[in-house]
Structure formats: structure tokens, C-alpha cells
């Protein structure tokens, strides 16, 4: 009788089983982050004072726009190369395909510090790229490649291209081959099939990939820290400096709130758009 009652379809058991995880997220994630956000609106100088002083600082506004710019470039480059690569992977013979997927998963499982560090060896003043360029006589003195926006973008694209490839391979595989065959047998050139059939069908997947890459690069810390340094301060590195070096809690909380607000609005807006475009997508 007791056992029968136990698996009766009542929600209480479900709630009880999910309670520990729910409480953990509530107590250690929602409440602390909520407190950070609420704190910025309870400033003695006035409700929006921290934000007014944030946007009055030329340096901090520059950091915000630089972060958005780096994320936008990273997203666009990753979309273009990720899509082309994913297309080739999705059409590869089965054996090669699983090898290519493994090759994309591997860098993803390698830590971000290791992956940023690799570019430090390549782009440094005495790095491999400079040595090669000097040896080939292309340049006469080493180029300053580190601590530039380009270095940060290269490092970020390196972080996120595998993610883009993996999320798009799944999408491209789900497009029925018949649709593409129908298009070409009705006389469309490969380019027309690509532009008018394949690309529109892949748009929801492209949006999901773009959101992942944009929010990921918008909040990344290790790569801009190592490859951009202080000259390319972004929101994440500024947040760390404010909190751990200057002990400016209000300033750090303001940056944290701005980052959270932008990230969540992008995720919500894009999932809304993706749903509008394709009612089948979730």
C-alpha cells in the first residue's frame, strides 16, 4: 500500500526530490546575484547614481563598447567559418565525420587558460609568428600583435568556433537531404540551393549558435586578460579589477548588473526571434 502511494502521480514527491537542487540554486545563485543587483539600486546617492557615474566615465563607457565590439566581431567571424566548416562536416562520410567531431570537441574540453596561453606563444613579441615573419623577410622588426583588439578577437574565435561547428552540425544534419535534392533536380544551381534552401532552414540554428558565442565572448575573462591586458580592458576584466584590486564593491556590482542585464536580454530576444522564424524550434 505504501509503495503504491509512493509512485502515485502526485507532485509532492517530485517537489521533494528536486528540492535540494532547487534550494541550492535559490540560496547560492538567485539570492546572491539578486543581492548584487538590488544593492546597486540602494545607493545613498540616489537609486541610479552608480549607473549615472558609470556612464559619465569615458573610460568605462569605452570598455562597454569595446566589449560589445569584440563580441560582435567574434560572433560574425565564428558564424561564417563555423557554418562553412559545419556544412563540410555534416556532409562527410560517417567515419571521417566522427573524427572531425572529436577534433572539434577536444579543444572545447581543453581549458580556456591553456587555449589563451597558446596564442600568447604565437603572437608574442618573440613569438612564432614574429619569428616566421622576420625569417621570411616580410617584416624588418617584430610586430606588436599582443594586447591589441585583434589578438583578443583571434583568441575568442579560437575559443568559440568549435562550439559553433558542433551546434550547427546537428542543425544541418536535421535538414532532410530530399529537400536539397528536390531543389537541385528542379534546376537550382548549387549556389542557389545553398542561398535559398539550406541557409534559411539553418537560420534558427545560426541564431542559437550566435547567442552562445556572443554571450560567451561578452563575459569571457581569461582570454582578454592574457591577450588584451590592460590596454584592452573589457567588462569582465574591469569587474575583476574593481572587486579584487580596488575593492570598489558598488562599481563592481554595477558592472555585474550591466553584464547580467545585457546577457539575459540577448538570450530572451534571440530565443523570441528564433521562435517567430521557426515555430518548430524551442
Amino acid at each position: 500500500m505504501t509503495s503504491r502511494r509512493f509512485w502515485c502521480r502526485d507532485g509532492a514527491t517530485g517537489w521533494a526530490l528536486s528540492a535540494p537542487a532547487t534550494l541550492a540554486v535559490l540560496c547560492f545563485l538567485i539570492v546572491p546575484i539578486g543581492a548584487v543587483i538590488a544593492g546597486t539600486f540602494m545607493d545613498p546617492r540616489g537609486a541610479f547614481a552608480p549607473y549615472i557615474s558609470y556612464f559619465n566615465s569615458g573610460f568605462r563607457t569605452t570598455v562597454l563598447f569595446r566589449t560589445l565590439q569584440i563580441s560582435a566581431f567574434t560572433t560574425i567571424i565564428s558564424l561564417i567559418f563555423g557554418f562553412m566548416t559545419a556544412y563540410v562536416v555534416s556532409r562527410a562520410p560517417a567515419k571521417l565525420k566522427s573524427l572531425l567531431i572529436v577534433a572539434a570537441v577536444f579543444p572545447l574540453l581543453t581549458g580556456v587558460v591553456v587555449r589563451a596561453f597558446a596564442w600568447l606563444i604565437i603572437l608574442g613579441r618573440n613569438g612564432i609568428l614574429n619569428q616566421t615573419l622576420l625569417a621570411l623577410g616580410i617584416v624588418n622588426e617584430p610586430l606588436e600583435m599582443l594586447y591589441t583588439q585583434g589578438a583578443v578577437i583571434v583568441g575568442m574565435v579560437y575559443l568559440f568556433v568549435p562550439l559553433m561547428v558542433l551546434s550547427l552540425v546537428g542543425v544541418l544534419e536535421n535538414i532532410p537531404k530530399d529537400v536539397l535534392q528536390a531543389s537541385s533536380s528542379l534546376g537550382a544551381s548549387p549556389m542557389a540551393t545553398f542561398r535559398q534552401v539550406l541557409l534559411p532552414l539553418a537560420v534558427p540554428g545560426l541564431i542559437v549558435g550566435a547567442v552562445l558565442v556572443f554571450t560567451g565572448s561578452f563575459t569571457a575573462y581569461a582570454t582578454p586578460q592574457l591577450l588584451g591586458g590592460e590596454r584592452q580592458t573589457v567588462l569582465a576584466t574591469l569587474l575583476q579589477q574593481r572587486a579584487m584590486v580596488s575593492f570598489d564593491w558598488v562599481g563592481a556590482s554595477t558592472i555585474a548588473t550591466i553584464m547580467t542585464a545585457i546577457t539575459i536580454s540577448i538570450v530572451l530576444a534571440m530565443s523570441h526571434i528564433a521562435r517567430r522564424i521557426n515555430p518548430m524550434a524551442t
Binding site: 532547487t22 546572491p32 543581492a35 548584487v36 563575459t219 569582465a236 556590482s253
Partner: peptide
């Protein structure tokens, strides 16, 4: 059927909010 849909979303929250914000929030409150 019995549990609300948002419960599933709740468990995904830790990857939805920026990790660096989460780290800072833990430092501040814990």
C-alpha cells in the same frame, strides 16, 4: 506533468547568468 515548466529552466540558470557575475556574487555574499 505535475511539476511546472520553469523548474527545468531553473537548473539551467547557472550557465545562463555570466559566470564571472556569479563568482563575484558568491564572494560578496558568502
Amino acid at each position: 506533468v505535475e511539476l511546472p515548466k520553469w523548474l527545468g529552466t531553473l537548473f539551467v540558470l547557472p550557465i545562463l547568468v555570466p559566470e564571472i557575475v556569479f563568482g563575484f556574487a558568491l564572494l560578496k555574499s558568502l
